[in-house]
Design a protein around this nucleic acid. Structure first.
Length: 915
RNA sequence: GCCGGAGUGGCGAAAUUGGUAUACGCACUAGACUCAAAAUCUAGCGGGCUUAACGCCCAUGUCGGUUCGAGUCCGACCUCCGGCACCA
């Protein structure tokens, strides 16, 4: 190689060497400790973006680090290749989704290889290939056998733009998660997986992974699962002779015990407030309402219908929906007080949660308060702050200005008066159960996972419908149920597979008679729920994987990806693992021991304020003028015809997520071409903490190039000055200890100190998943090396520099592997690089890291006044004496009374004087 | 509205978890090299004051507190960013 750094040349050389040596292939059963490093698999869109680069750079850094630490590292890659974009491409451009997807995979794999990520490509999986989705179907059939997969008619979230059903997660906020269009409701037969069977485990097993997962992800999962404990209470429903309701009440009994009475079951977390209930409020869809809809007065029925349709409108997160409702004329009897309460329909009660019925206690619930205020319903306070209990009894006062939602002491609650909320919640639920009108209960926000999609590009659900036998699962032996080559995508609302007769028409696995296949495909989150198990045994044709391979490699030691998957993917994957555990396929509860969520890569964008149009991107197309404070005052676009000049006021400055559609993306290929893969990766790791948002700044990447060039020059400068070290495997303890002690305070001594301090810092940083600070530490070390001039150095200096450079090179590997490999081969005069030599992370020597002299700040009354040089072994007494006898310090202390002296060992001395 | 998180130079950020605030990098300024430019190297780079002394004062969103000592802990407030959103 050259003494000048040509990134491209170096990178291509080592990429070839790695590939030829199959360098990153890992096999189970090694006696080394295993480490499974996983990054979230991408959708093969056809173009790698900087978000991917950030994700995989971090993963690759850890994979390299663990290899250097002697682990047997599994670092696989695959493709989440089912999903809508392939279908969209088929519709828009008439391409075949299979071909389109395979082409994209080839393109993106090339991009990844040019980045030099150390993946074991022999384990690559792709969700759209029959050899993979065969086992989606296999799992589905297993779950069907276990009663975990079932079908029911349901109102689904429907996106009319994408012509697809959406899970609740995907329809969050009433808008389609993909296209952002409003979601409507539609009745369809849908397949579900019983995630609710595992809801408590999903919550409780968080204790196992708490230490390794970001708090906010666990928090979001908790919120998503939404467990709340309370009680069911059954209210008897009566027509009560009101003119608004005619005829007998039919159906709609929602409580378990009926005694021949019509009852409606409500859920509450605050049974202690039940004496404050002024009404019962039902969802418009509630069975009691719908079963009796013809018996309501005209205007009531109309209002109910209105509320029902209004509620299907998309929820706008910015605008709070005004409370609305209608008194149905029905009455409900409060089982505790015997009081007769009106039954309302309210737009704020959702059928999907709890029982679709609530008791309204305006004094102690904000929504009920609003509702009562709007319709002028009575408000009765039944919980008091403990110190006000007396007043409540004497004055019967409800001077509440707002709902009092805190716990307190019960008042105006008969027998229960004086009990605390906590006591009452427990005892009242028990009382209700004893008397047959309720029980303690827990409800969840999480519902079963609807996996049916009216889509072509997904795994077919392996079910057959036979007129004779009904719903029949496909035999395991007949898997996979393969997707046809293509289909007619033009239809609306129906699965495209329904229009492929060769696919639909089949024979019944049971009776061999004519039958039809299920034409829905599975949600793509099924694919990503277990792909990380497939990597351990990707070619298995009989089972999803060999249990021995799984036993060796899993669970995943470190998972890295975006926190946009905090709830969907990461809950489904946890669910899947628990099901697999119950199938005795894995012996543990949790798939991912540690999770790291990396922040977005965002672009800096400017908009012309007058036109609202994007002015330019990327930054190098524009000339920016800044004021002395660094604020942007004007910008000029170098593109002809798109000139925009003016003050900062005329330009809107925005930071936004990089994306193709916004046109503000940075092409990784371009970065590799201009700066090299190593510099790109190094910069992405260095520029910001991994969990922070990263604002792309092209100038910064040039800094990374400069750093690599500096290291490069240093290695060439010094490698000609001495022989390679005796030990080929890299920097081991034997090479470091063999050196004779040198002069205290000498430059070689200081460099060795810095080297070993850096080894410690960098190692610690990797263990705590920090990537920006170790790069800074390596830069410091290189700066220190650069300070030593090779002209006429003594032997000790050459040794110290060589040690420093070897350590630097090894520690640089996780960030810039190509450059590091090349420099390592120069330093060791061995063309075969690190992997061939089984190079190891440099060994930390505490003795060498220790400074000969340390600086001890001396404070007077907590203010820094002076610095002393002292031995790191100096005792507290010695430090104190040194400080007190120091001339400079005495200027401050002379004539003053010393109150006390604080000495922090190896840290500082603080002398406290009397004021 | 509820729940989290964060506010440190012109910018991205460090700070051994209560002990020298601003490491490292970007940008910028000056100088060296050069016919010149680029690259590279050297020096400087929070603000202010002064008799210029490796001296003082002020600075980690604001105000207060604890402490010998606070970016770090406590209380109140302000701002920004995320998540959830009628969840009973």
């Amino acid at each position: 190689m050259d003494e000048k750094y040509f990134a491209k040349k170096v990178e291509q050389k080592w990429q070839r060497k790695w590939a030829d040596a199959n360098a990153f292939h890992a096999e189970a059963g090694d006696e080394r400790q295993k480490f499974y490093q996983l990054e979230m698999l991408p959708y093969p869109s056809g173009a790698l973006h900087m978000g991917h680069v950030r994700n995989y750079s971090a993963g690759d850094a850890l994979a390299w680090y663990k290899r250097l630490r002697g682990f047997n590292v599994l670092h696989p890659f695959g493709w989440d290749s089912f999903g809508q974009p392939a279908e969209d491409a088929a519709i828009k451009r008439g391409v075949n989704p299979h071909e389109w997807t395979e082409e994209n995979i080839v393109i993106m794999r090339g991009q990844l290889e040019r980045m030099g990520f150390s993946y074991d490509w022999s384990r690559q999986m792709a969700a759209h290939r029959p050899e993979y989705y065969k086992f989606d179907q296999w799992f589905f059939l297993k779950m069907y056998e276990m009663g975990l997969a079932y079908k029911r008619l349901t109102q689904v979230n429907w996106c009319s733009h994408d012509q697809a059903t959406l899970s609740n997660e995907q329809a969050s906020g009433g808008l389609c998660w993909r296209c952002g269009n409003p979601v409507t409701k539609k009745d369809l037969e849908q397949w579900f997986l019983r995630t609710t069977n595992y809801v408590d485990q999903l919550l409780d097993d968080m204790a196992e992974i708490e230490a390794g997962w970001p708090q906010n992800v666990l928090k979001r999962q908790q919120d998503w699962i939404g467990r709340s404990t309370g009680a069911y209470v059954d209210f008897e429903i009566l027509a009560h002779g009101e003119s608004l309701f005619s005829g007998p009440i039919v159906d709609g009994i929602t409580s378990k015990s009926d005694h021949g009475k019509n009852r409606v079951r409500i859920f509450t977390t605050r049974i202690d407030t039940i004496y404050g209930a002024n009404s019962i409020v039902l969802a418009a869809e509630h069975p009691v309402i719908q079963a009796n809809i013809d018996n309501f007065a005209e205007e009531v029925a109309q209002k109910i219908a209105f509320i029902r349709t209004e509620n299907t409108k998309p929820k706008d997160h910015e605008i709070e929906i005004e409370k609305d409702g209608i008194d149905t004329g029905l009455k409900a009897i409060n089982p505790f007080s015997g009081e007769s309460l009106p039954v309302w329909v309210g737009n704020y009660v959702m059928m999907e949660y709890g029982t679709g019925a609530v008791m309204s206690v305006p004094a102690h619930d904000e929504r009920d308060w609003e509702f009562a205020k709007k319709f002028d319903l009575p408000i009765r306070q039944v919980i008091s702050e403990p110190h006000l209990v007396h007043e409540h009894h004497s004055m019967h006062a409800f001077a509440l200005e707002d709902a009092f939602t805190e716990y307190g002491v019960l008042v105006h609650s008969d027998y229960w008066n004086g009990k605390t909320s906590d006591q009452a919640k427990k005892e009242m639920a028990e009382y209700a159960e004893k008397h047959g009108f309720g029980e303690a209960a827990t409800t969840y926000r999480l519902r079963d996972w609807g996996i049916s999609r009216q889509r072509f590009w997904g795994a077919p659900i392996p079910i057959v419908y036979c007129d004779k036998c009904g719903t029949v699962p496909v035999n395991f032996d007949d898997l996979p149920v393969e997707l046809p080559e293509t289909a007619d995508f033009s239809g609306a609302g129906e699965s495209p597979l329904a229009r492929v007769p060769e696919f639909v028409n089949t024979t019944c696995p049971k009776c061999d008679g004519p039958a039809r296949r299920e034409t829905d495909t599975m949600d793509t989150f099924v694919d990503s729920s277990w792909y990380y198990y497939r990597y351990v045994d990707p070619d298995n044709e009989i089972l999803p994987f060999n249990p021995n391979e799984v036993a060796y490699w899993t669970p995943v030691d470190q998972y890295i990806g975006g926190d946009d998957h905090a709830v969907m993917h990461l809950i489904y994957a946890r669910f899947w693992t628990k099901v697999m555990r119950d199938m005795e396929l894995v012996p543990f509860n949790e798939p991912f021991k540690r999770l790291l969520t990396q922040g977005l890569v965002v672009g800096e964008t400017f908009f012309d304020d007058s036109t609202g149009k994007r002015v330019y991107f990327p930054a190098d197309q524009v000339t920016v003028t800044r004021d002395e404070k660094g604020r942007i005052t004007s910008a000029r676009v170098s593109e002809p015809g798109a000139v925009a000049t003016g003050s900062a006021k005329s330009l809107k400055h925005a930071i936004e997520r990089m994306s193709k559609s916004k046109g503000n993306g940075v092409d990784p290929d371009e970065m590799v071409e201009i700066y090299g893969a190593d510099a790109t990766r190094l910069f992405v790791m260095f520029a910001a903490p991994i969990e922070n948002e990263l604002v792309w700044n092209e100038a910064g990447i040039e800094g990374a190039v400069r750093f690599l060039q500096r290291v490069w020059r240093l290695v060439y400068k010094w490698s000609s000055k001495s022989e390679p070290p005796a030990v080929a495997g890299g920097l081991t303890s034997s090479t470091t200890q063999v050196q004779p002690p040198t002069t205290v305070g000498g430059s070689d001594r200081r460099l060795r100190q810095k080297t070993h301090q850096t080894i410690k810092r960098v190692g610690d940083a990797f263990e705590t998943l920090q990537f920006n600070t170790p790069v800074a530490a390596l830069m410091e070390l290189s700066n220190e090396i650069a300070d030593i001039e090779p002209d006429g150095p003594n032997d000790a200096e050459v040794v110290a520099v060589r040690e420093a450079l070897t350590a630097l090179t090894l520690m640089l590997t996780p960030f810039a592997p190509h450059t590091a490999e090349e420099l390592y081969s120069v330093l060791t005069a061995n063309e075969n690089g690190m992997l061939a030599n089984a190079a190891r992370f440099p060994e930390y020597n505490e003795e060498l890291a220790k400074a000969d002299e340390i600086e001890i700040p001396v404070q007077i009354n907590g203010k820094l006044r002076h610095r002393l040089m002292a031995s790191p072994d100096a005792t507290n007494e010695e430090l104190e004496q040194m400080a007190l006898s120091d001339e400079k310090v005495r200027e401050y202390t002379d004539g003053k009374e010393i109150v006390k002296i604080i000495v922090v060992p190896k840290r500082l001395v603080n002398i406290v004087l009397k004021a």
